[in-house]
């Protein structure tokens, strides 16, 4: 934690005095801690003078910010138009089934994967597409999903 506080202070000093820096600042904080913790947002508010409500407002507005811990690998399932007409729902179901996610869970019990739906990854010609970390996988079928996931399983 003390290490992390020093890293946090380094981020805060990097953006000190720059206007409009709240979003990139929070992005860096999220990269450091994996998600936006409530006590961290309070600390950022104290240090920057930006009201905590405003920070929370920004954190909840943008889909990239997460208020809960996430898995080691984030799986982004594209739900763009091209993917939708090419069967993205089936891919999502296959992933959730393979990872044994129930109900509204989005992170696996071993904290290896977090599954989220995104609007469009811009690889429409490869539809249906998912991204795991920064790798893109295209032309998937429910049957090819397990093999892709296996590449990331320990």
């Amino acid at each position: 934690m003390s290490n992390s506080r020093a890293d946090l202070d380094a981020i805060l000093s990097r953006y000190k005095g720059r206007h409009g820096a709240l979003i990139p600042l929070l992005q860096d904080v999220q990269n450091l801690e994996g998600y936006l913790r409530q006590d961290t947002m309070k600390y950022v508010s104290e240090q920057t003078g930006v009201p905590a409500a405003e920070i929370f407002g920004v954190a909840t507005f943008y889909s990239m910010f997460r208020l809960k811990p996430q898995g080691k690998y984030v799986i982004r399932v594209c739900k763009g138009t091209a993917c939708h007409v090419s069967g993205a729902n089936g891919i999502l179901n296959a992933i959730r089934e393979n990872l044994k996610l129930n109900g509204t869970d989005d992170t696996t019990e071993d904290a290896l994967f977090t599954v989220m739906e995104v609007a469009c990854l811009g690889c429409c010609s490869l539809a249906p597409v998912i991204m795991i970390g920064d790798q893109t996988f295209g032309k998937l079928t429910p049957d090819t999903v397990p093999a892709v996931l296996k590449k990331f399983s320990a």
Partner: peptide
């Protein structure tokens, strides 16, 4: 360069400017 943070409405120009300023778009 300003990286967006995932909000479709920010493609609208006035929302985009709010976002560059670090606010809710």
């Amino acid at each position: 360069i300003k990286e967006g943070a995932g909000a479709f409405v920010c493609g609208e120009e006035t929302a985009l400017m709010q976002s560059i300023e670090g606010k809710r778009g």
